[in-house]
Design a binder for these strands. Structure first.
Length: 433
RNA sequence: GGAGGGGUGGCUGAGCGGUCGAAAGCGGCGGUCUUGAAAACCGCUGGCCCUUCACGGGGCCCGUGGGUUCGAAUCCCACCCCCUCCGCCA
């Protein structure tokens, strides 16, 4: 099936806007001209084929009538046969054009929202707010890659022994802390923020990844189980957003709010040499995800709300952070607007991304055919595309890093935030085993 | 892994290869009736694409993709999904 990625209406009627958006995103603006040419070819081909089909259908019907009356239909049959050959040839051409068009469309990124700061990269990101104060230490704070092994709760060597670089084994209070964080986040989002908890498959088919935008362009970032033609999920955004693929939801059911814990698997292609130490960049990490499906009118309010839900986790844990609005050049492929939440990490002396909250508008909805039926007094209302939003709430491994580094004490122990203690069986402090 | 059964419109469920995008029922919407509601009766009630200022016209869709045929929901092939039984298994 041919599926547009950006709205074809928009491409046809306001190509300048798309060209400008592509430029702002460091994309190739010439793709718009190519698209317009292919679209023109496609429509011409459709017109030609359908005209012949109309003739063929009329003629075929006549054959039925002749035969029913017992008349000779040989002549009519011969005529239809000729048409058939022509139709097949033209359909072949049409299919070729459509194939080209849709491969091009699948590589076009979403258009940035007008409120997104324009810039080539992360240096143009806009800091929206800074919350909490970085802790002051009267000793030199350790990075988690020193702290964790000293406490006996993180083992990078043995993780590598099992699976190679970028895999880690957690022990004792470290393993439990990861589990505690997952439980705390899920409880918060289900109990206070109105999300429904989902436990989705951790592997998905290619269609789902096309739906959310990882495929076909970013295959290299994914782990694939080749023998079974399945991919490990790079984020719960994929299964959650695809749950209602090919469905038409009732407007009364909106907004749909889902939260899920899943491990995430990323090949981290092209990031060799970056964040090689510690837990920051792993091939496998845990994440609690937030997803919302909303009407177009609600989606930007929902983005603010969803970002607030993710922030709430850091507030409950007492961790300092800031929120930045990503610039056009730093925006993800599917996103129209993204807030990154960056937590303060004393071991790096920097704010680091711990959550990314995006409004994809109808970009994923168009790929995944996610629709709703608008409520109207007369009961009518054509199905319309939903808006999809997703955000980490939060990346669990990085939250564990933030707890270790921000709550470390002079003696090398970690004083746990009070909100976490019930989830740790009452444990107040992690000390060397 | 082996054997069998099945996927039709929002739902249930018919459908000798030709006027079937598809009977019927349910549901939904509108109307008649009613003070109002229910009941009864009447009418309407899928999606995508192309074209048109519009009215309208056309093409495609009966799990998906191919094939046979002048013509396929109906026949053939492959795949996907669901169900039953056997095997295996946390």
């Amino acid at each position: 099936m041919l599926r547009a990625v950006l709205s074809r209406e928009l491409l046809r009627h306001d190509p300048e806007r798309v060209r400008a958006a592509l430029t702002a995103r460091n994309g190739d603006p010439d793709l718009v001209a190519r698209w317009l040419a292919l679209d023109e070819q496609r429509r011409a081909a459709i017109g030609a084929v359908e005209e012949k089909k109309r003739d063929r259908n009329a003629a075929s019907q006549k054959i039925g009538e002749l035969k029913r009356k017992g008349d000779n239909a040989d002549e009519a049959i011969a005529a239809v046969s000729r048409l058939k050959g022509e139709i097949e040839a033209e359909e072949g051409q049409l299919a070729a054009v459509e194939g080209e068009l849709s491969s091009l469309e699948l590589t076009l990124p979403n258009l940035p929202h007008e409120s997104v700061p324009v810039g080539a990269d992360e240096s143009a990101n806009r800091v929206e707010r800074v919350v909490g104060e970085p802790p002051r230490f009267d000793f030199a704070p350790q990075a988690h890659w020193d702290l964790g092994p000293r406490l006996g709760i993180l083992d990078f060597e043995r993780g590598a022994k099992l699976a190679g670089a970028r895999f880690t084994a957690y022990f004792g209070a470290g393993a439990r802390l990861e589990r505690a964080l997952i439980a705390l986040m899920l409880d918060l989002h289900t109990g206070e923020h109105g999300y429904r908890e989902v436990l989705p498959p951790f592997m998905v088919r290619g269609e789902s990844l096309v739906g959310t935008g990882q495929l076909p362009k970013f295959e290299a970032d994914l782990f694939k189980v080749e023998a079974h033609d399945l991919y490990l999920v790079p984020t719960a955004e994929v299964p959650l957003t695809n749950l209602h693929r090919e469905e038409v939801l009732d407007e009364a059911a909106l907004p749909v709010r889902y939260t899920a814990y899943t491990p995430c698997f990323r090949a981290e292609a092209g990031s060799h040499g970056r964040d090689v130490r510690g837990l920051i960049r792993q091939h496998q990490f845990n994440k609690v995800e937030l997803v919302q499906l909303t009407t177009p009118a609600q989606s930007y309010a929902a983005l603010e709300e969803l970002t607030g839900h993710a922030e709430r986790v850091l507030q409950v844990l007492g961790l300092p952070y800031r929120v930045v609005s990503l610039s056009t050049g730093d925006l993800g492929f599917a996103s129209a607007k993204t807030y990154d939440i960056e937590v303060w990490l004393p071991g790096q002396d920097a704010y680091r991304e711990i959550s990314s909250c995006s409004n994809c508008e109808d970009f994923q909805a168009r790929r995944a055919n996610l629709r709703y039926r608008p409520h109207r007094p007369d009961g009518g209302g054509k199905p319309a595309l939903l808006h999809t939003l997703n955000g980490s709430g939060l990346a669990v491994g990085r939250t564990l890093i933030a707890v270790l580094e921000n709550c470390q004490q002079a003696d090398g122990s970690v004083l746990l935030p009070p909100a976490l203690r019930p989830y740790m069986g009452g444990l107040e402090r992690i000390t060397a085993a």
